[in-house]
Design a protein around this nucleic acid. Structure first.
Length: 380
DNA sequence: GGCACCGGGCTCTGCCATAGGT
DNA sequence: ACCTATGGCAGAGCCCGGTGCC
């Protein structure tokens, strides 16, 4: 309560304005009585005018007011806000002026959170993350994830729940780092997704649904911010398209297939269709396609255009389709990278038929070392 | 030492719709 | 009438290195 009051008196406009008593959202869910300043609008004929002194404050903080207005217009009409308290709070945590301005511009509702609430939330997130710097990084990337919910209790419930699934601290750290929205979901929504995963496991004849759910979450950190509808649609689509048995699908989902469960369903379908069309035209059979997708699911992440370019580039470089199907990892690398490597290899007369194409999916460092040796050999 | 296999790391936010509250 | 909290969606890959086998 004391820090909340400090936030209140920190308001720039306070000193110049008369007081009025209103209720305002606090860190807890119960409303508090507070004093705040009132600024008459230039245009009092508007039923809900913007708070002019707030606009001035935001401007001073370097906030893109136009963007803020577009995102959450209601915030600009609020009588009580905590922009200066928030700015100081974030500054103390190591955020730059630009970062703070960008956070408020992109998620204006952040300025409605009290200092008590901010402090509590910060500590909760810090339970998983190691440093303030890491947290500032996440906020900078995704202010919405941190500020969208005012329910700190729910965050704690999520931690308890996710830990109870057997997810390690490392998993939680990865989850909050890559998909911070997971922790702003209501715990019930996360439970729903876990139940959905467990149901899929049981339906496929699996014997350890808890382990199944845990494995998929730790393999695919985005799964909890997707809808169960999408998950079911993708699972069914893969099953019918590839004509998989229950056992095959079960193994696939908790193995390499976990990675593609969260793709947009339409995108998955489009990519599968274009992959099939392309490969059938090149003389592949359905079994080849199934083997490719089972062994290298990430091929479904590649959009139709990119896939076409990659295949063209490899084939033009003298590689035959059979080799690509045997070593689909070559499709992992960017077209630019592969093209450059193909050129370097052509220059020294590298024979893909004799030596295989493994050289194309080495890391940059390993490729460099390999090239050096090859060049030395050719020179001798 | 060279190679194949394999898994992991990075990254993924910003917008819209809507139920429910005030 | 308006705002907040929350669910859901679109978007569209690339790269590295540990390990074990030969």
């Amino acid at each position: 309560m004391a820090s909340g009051f400090k936030a209140f008196i920190g308001l720039h406009r306070l000193a110049q304005q008369p007081f009025k008593c209103i209720t305002v959202q606090s860190a807890t869910t119960s409303p508090l009585l507070r004093f705040y300043s009132v600024t008459p609008s230039k245009d009092d004929t508007n039923a809900y005018p913007e708070n002019e002194s707030l606009l001035e404050n935001l401007d001073l903080l370097g906030v893109d007011v136009k963007m803020a207005r577009q995102r959450q217009p209601g915030v600009l009409r609020r009588g009580v806000t905590n922009e200066q308290g928030l700015a100081r709070f974030l500054q103390n945590k190591g955020a730059s002026r630009q970062t703070i301005a960008s956070i408020i511009s992109r998620y204006p509702r952040a300025i409605t959170r009290s200092l008590d609430h901010l402090e509590q939330r910060w500590q909760l997130w810090k339970n998983i993350l190691q440093t303030d710097k890491e947290l500032v990084g996440i906020l900078e990337r995704s202010p919405e994830s941190f500020f969208r919910s005012s329910n700190n209790g729910n965050f704690e419930k999520n931690i308890t729940y996710l830990s109870s699934l057997g997810l390690s601290n490392k998993d939680l750290h990865r989850l909050i780092g890559t998909a911070p929205r997971t922790f702003s979901n209501r715990v019930e929504l996360n439970k729903q997704m876990v139940r959905c995963l467990e149901d899929i496991c049981v339906q496929l004849g699996g014997t350890d649904p808890e382990e199944f759910a845990k494995v998929i979450i730790s393999k695919n950190h985005y799964i909890l911010i997707r809808s169960t509808k999408r998950l079911k649609a993708n699972t069914n689509y893969v099953r019918t398209t590839l004509k998989l048995t229950d056992a095959e699908l079960l193994a696939y989902l908790q193995g390499p297939g976990a990675k593609i469960l969260d793709i947009s369903n339409e995108y998955l379908k489009n990519n599968m269709t274009s992959l099939q069309g392309r490969l059938l035209a090149l003389g592949c059979c359905e079994e080849d396609i199934k083997k490719l997708v089972m062994g290298y699911p990430m091929v479904l992440y590649i959009g139709a255009t990119t896939l076409g370019t990659k295949l063209d580039c490899l084939i033009k470089g003298g590689i035959i389709l059979k080799q690509i199907l045997e070593k689909p990892k070559v499709l992992d690398y960017g077209t630019k990278n592969v093209t450059a490597r193909l050129e370097e290899l052509r220059a020294i007369g590298y024979d893909f038929q004799a030596n295989g194409i493994g050289i194309l999916d080495l890391s940059r460092k390993r490729f460099g070392a390999k090239m050096e040796k090859l060049v030395t050999c050719t020179d001798e």
